[in-house]
Amino acid sequence: MTFRREEDGRKGADACILCRLCDAGSSYGVTLDERRSLRHTVWLAKNGRESAWLYAAMLNGVGEKACPMSIAIDDAIIEARRRMAAKGLETKENREFFEKVRRGVNPYA
Protein backbone atom coordinates (compact mmCIF):
# COMPACT_ATOMS: atom_id res chain seq x y z
CA MET A 1 0.00 0.00 0.00
CA THR A 2 1.37 3.40 -0.95
CA PHE A 3 0.22 6.21 1.29
CA ARG A 4 -0.43 9.59 -0.24
CA ARG A 5 2.19 11.27 1.91
CA GLU A 6 4.92 9.23 0.21
CA GLU A 7 3.80 10.75 -3.07
CA ASP A 8 3.41 14.39 -2.09
CA GLY A 9 5.91 14.85 0.74
CA ARG A 10 3.41 15.16 3.56
CA LYS A 11 4.43 14.06 7.04
CA GLY A 12 3.58 11.23 9.43
CA ALA A 13 1.95 11.49 12.85
CA ASP A 14 5.34 11.91 14.54
CA ALA A 15 5.41 15.49 13.22
CA CYS A 16 2.29 16.41 15.25
CA ILE A 17 2.79 19.44 17.53
CA LEU A 18 -0.53 18.85 19.37
CA CYS A 19 -1.84 22.28 18.42
CA ARG A 20 -5.45 21.10 17.96
CA LEU A 21 -6.13 23.07 14.76
CA CYS A 22 -7.25 19.76 13.23
CA ASP A 23 -10.15 19.72 15.70
CA ALA A 24 -11.84 22.72 14.06
CA GLY A 25 -14.10 20.31 12.20
CA SER A 26 -13.99 17.21 14.38
CA SER A 27 -16.72 15.82 16.60
CA TYR A 28 -14.77 17.08 19.63
CA GLY A 29 -16.25 20.53 19.08
CA VAL A 30 -19.71 19.04 19.64
CA THR A 31 -19.11 16.27 22.17
CA LEU A 32 -16.28 18.05 24.06
CA ASP A 33 -15.03 14.54 24.74
CA GLU A 34 -11.25 14.70 24.59
CA ARG A 35 -11.07 11.01 23.68
CA ARG A 36 -12.94 11.75 20.46
CA SER A 37 -10.71 14.65 19.47
CA LEU A 38 -8.71 14.23 16.32
CA ARG A 39 -5.70 15.51 18.21
CA HIS A 40 -5.96 12.56 20.58
CA THR A 41 -6.41 10.09 17.73
CA VAL A 42 -3.25 11.45 16.10
CA TRP A 43 -1.50 11.33 19.50
CA LEU A 44 -2.41 7.63 19.76
CA ALA A 45 -1.00 7.01 16.28
CA LYS A 46 2.10 9.08 17.04
CA ASN A 47 2.81 7.14 20.23
CA GLY A 48 2.07 3.72 18.76
CA ARG A 49 -0.83 3.16 21.18
CA GLU A 50 -3.32 0.42 20.46
CA SER A 51 -6.75 1.71 21.32
CA ALA A 52 -10.33 1.37 20.15
CA TRP A 53 -10.39 5.19 20.10
CA LEU A 54 -8.26 5.09 16.97
CA TYR A 55 -11.60 4.35 15.32
CA ALA A 56 -13.20 7.57 16.59
CA ALA A 57 -11.88 9.57 13.63
CA MET A 58 -14.14 9.76 10.58
CA LEU A 59 -11.24 10.20 8.13
CA ASN A 60 -13.12 12.87 6.19
CA GLY A 61 -10.02 14.92 5.41
CA VAL A 62 -11.16 18.08 7.25
CA GLY A 63 -8.45 17.78 9.91
CA GLU A 64 -5.78 17.24 7.26
CA LYS A 65 -6.71 20.50 5.56
CA ALA A 66 -6.35 22.44 8.80
CA CYS A 67 -3.06 20.82 9.86
CA PRO A 68 -0.24 23.41 9.85
CA MET A 69 2.36 20.64 9.81
CA SER A 70 0.99 19.01 6.61
CA ILE A 71 0.47 15.70 8.34
CA ALA A 72 -1.31 13.06 6.29
CA ILE A 73 -3.62 12.50 9.25
CA ASP A 74 -5.99 10.00 7.66
CA ASP A 75 -3.15 7.84 6.35
CA ALA A 76 -1.42 7.94 9.73
CA ILE A 77 -4.58 6.74 11.47
CA ILE A 78 -5.23 4.02 8.90
CA GLU A 79 -1.64 2.90 9.37
CA ALA A 80 -2.12 2.71 13.16
CA ARG A 81 -5.40 0.81 12.74
CA ARG A 82 -3.68 -1.61 10.37
CA ARG A 83 -0.97 -2.26 12.95
CA MET A 84 -3.70 -3.09 15.45
CA ALA A 85 -5.52 -5.35 13.02
CA ALA A 86 -2.29 -7.17 12.16
CA LYS A 87 -1.98 -8.05 15.83
CA GLY A 88 -5.59 -9.22 15.91
CA LEU A 89 -6.55 -6.25 18.07
CA GLU A 90 -9.28 -4.73 15.92
CA THR A 91 -12.44 -3.76 17.74
CA LYS A 92 -15.48 -6.01 18.13
CA GLU A 93 -17.51 -3.58 16.01
CA ASN A 94 -14.91 -3.75 13.28
CA ARG A 95 -14.82 -7.53 13.28
CA GLU A 96 -18.61 -7.59 12.98
CA PHE A 97 -18.53 -5.01 10.20
CA PHE A 98 -16.09 -6.99 8.06
CA GLU A 99 -17.83 -10.25 8.83
CA LYS A 100 -21.01 -8.73 7.35
CA VAL A 101 -19.05 -7.54 4.31
CA ARG A 102 -17.68 -11.07 3.86
CA ARG A 103 -21.18 -12.50 4.09
CA GLY A 104 -22.41 -9.98 1.52
CA VAL A 105 -24.96 -8.31 3.80
CA ASN A 106 -25.42 -4.65 4.64
CA PRO A 107 -22.60 -3.87 7.10
CA TYR A 108 -24.46 -0.83 8.49
CA ALA A 109 -27.68 -2.70 9.28
Binding site: L18, L32, E34, S37, H40, W43, R49, S51
Partner: peptide
Protein backbone atom coordinates in the same frame (compact mmCIF):
# COMPACT_ATOMS: atom_id res chain seq x y z
CA UNK B 1 -8.51 6.51 27.79
CA UNK B 2 -9.83 9.74 29.34
CA UNK B 3 -6.87 9.94 31.71
CA UNK B 4 -4.58 9.38 28.75
CA UNK B 5 -6.34 12.06 26.67
CA UNK B 6 -5.96 14.58 29.49
CA UNK B 7 -2.40 13.59 30.35
CA UNK B 8 -0.80 16.01 27.87
CA UNK B 9 -1.19 19.39 26.24
CA UNK B 10 0.71 21.11 23.45
CA UNK B 11 3.81 21.53 25.63
CA UNK B 12 4.93 17.92 25.34
CA UNK B 13 4.82 17.48 29.13
CA UNK B 14 2.87 14.48 30.37
CA UNK B 15 1.23 13.66 33.70
CA UNK B 16 -1.59 11.21 34.33
CA UNK B 17 -4.43 12.93 36.22
CA UNK B 18 -6.55 11.34 38.95
CA UNK B 19 -9.88 12.16 37.32
CA UNK B 20 -11.50 14.51 34.84
CA UNK B 21 -14.56 16.56 35.76
CA UNK B 22 -16.56 18.64 33.30
Amino acid sequence: ESLLAYSYDASGLEGRPLAVLK
